[in-house]
Amino acid sequence: MSSVIEAELDTSSIKQILKHDSNVAFIAGGIAGAVSRTIVSPFERVKILLQVQNSSNAYNQGIFNAIKQVYQEEGVKGLFRGNGLNCIRIFPYSAVQFVVYESSKKHIFGVDGVRRNEQLTNGQRLFSGALCGGASVVATYPLDLVRTRLSIQTANLKNLQKSKAKSIVKPPGVWELLCKIFREEGNIKGLYRGVWPTSLGVVPYVAINFAVYEQLKEFMPNSKVNGRSTWNENVCKLLIGAISGGASQTLTYPFDLLRRRFQVLSMGNSELGFHYTSVTDSLITIGKTEGFKGYYKGLTANLFKVIPSTAASWLVYEFVCETMRNW
């Protein structure tokens, strides 16, 4: 009898721990990030390839043709290359964002976001979103760098010579690549190569994403049944998540492009066709050599990824939060 009581107490204690606001946000945010990125992994891979290639490269026949080409050259694994690492990276990346955002709500602005009559102002949302965006970059950037390298190292970015292509039989793994970057590219500095242009893109992107989503969410009717969202409410969350993701990504996309290019600069300037000395230099060079369209190279592929990814992320986050709080 005592063992049963102890088991019930242990279960109750676990539930109380899991229901803590920070733990709910961390778990729900991590799951939301992993699920949403896996859904759109092929678009993510193609987007990176489009971003880092120059105008004479091979992936220039449209998004779906590029996906088809990757499939023909590398099979199904090619479409999801780097996704395992991306999920490992995105779980803490997404989790940190939601934890910091919810903590900013509660501890900086004294707002309990669970109650609809207590909401942040748009300025406070932008500040909190920028804070959580910066925190997530610092926490997970080395994994993002490695994931980008993994995504392009087996790809045909320049109609490479057959001898070159044949030499890429088995690319280095995650740990091997991390150690190589650390050893050959300046230790910690190498692992954070491109973090400045990344922050210029991620911080405003996350800030706008959170601000737009929460603003649009205020217009949704409260139609929960027994603490759970109805089907109509879930559809609305998908729609406003898609809008927030599309708007924030379009506004900040040039910096996302710079983020990828700075991450791969050391992999071979002659192969990739560009070299920049600073963020300012990169913006000027892209404008001169690639025109205005150069700033938005890969945007369409990115929107195919970001819109469903952000929509799924917000829906999964809200669902997991509701499930954990009602457990």
Rank of each mutant, 00 (worst) to 15 (best):
R193W: 01
W175Q: 05
I108A: 08
A135F: 15
S199A: 12
V99D: 11
N117K: 13
S136G: 04
G173W: 00
S163V: 05
K105M: 11
F127E: 06
Y101L: 14
T148N: 09
I188A: 06
V111A: 04
L126H: 00
L126M: 07
G129V: 08
Y192E: 07
N159M: 11
G113S: 05
L178Y: 06
V195A: 00
Q153T: 08
A130D: 09
S128P: 14
R193M: 06
A155G: 11
N117A: 11
K105D: 15
G194P: 07
A135Y: 05
Y192Q: 05
G113K: 00
V169I: 07
R183D: 13
R125Q: 12
V138P: 07
L150G: 00
L191F: 00
V100I: 11
L178W: 02
I188M: 08
R116D: 10
R183K: 11
E184S: 06
V137Q: 06
P197K: 00
E118T: 08
P172C: 04
Q119S: 15
G129E: 12
K180V: 08
N156T: 07
K189F: 10
K170C: 12
G110T: 06
A135L: 13
L200Y: 10
V146N: 00
V111D: 07
W196D: 15
S199L: 09
H107C: 10
V114I: 10
L160N: 10
W196G: 15
Q124L: 02
L131T: 07
I152N: 06
G194W: 00
E184W: 00
E102Q: 10
L177V: 10
L191N: 01
L178H: 04
E118S: 12
F127T: 04
K162C: 08
K106S: 15
L191M: 03
R183W: 08
Y101A: 08
T148V: 13
I108T: 06
G134I: 09
E118F: 04
V146H: 01
I108E: 10
I188Y: 03
P142F: 01
V138Q: 02
C132W: 00
V99F: 03
Q119P: 15
V111E: 07
E184R: 02
T121M: 10
V169F: 04
F109I: 07
V169L: 12
N122T: 13
G123H: 04
F127P: 11
G133P: 04
K189I: 11
I168N: 08
G173E: 09
K105R: 13
P142M: 00
L160S: 09
W196P: 15
K170V: 14
N187Q: 15
V146T: 01
F182L: 03
G134W: 04
T148C: 15
S136L: 02
A130I: 04
F182Q: 02
L160W: 02
A155N: 05
L120R: 04
F182C: 01
G123K: 03
C179W: 03
N156C: 10
V100M: 08
Q119G: 14
W175E: 13
I181Y: 01
V114L: 13
A135E: 09
E176H: 04
G123N: 07
A130F: 04
C179T: 03
T121R: 06
K164I: 09
F109E: 09
T198D: 12
C132G: 01
L200M: 14
L157K: 00
D144E: 15
E118P: 09
H107R: 04
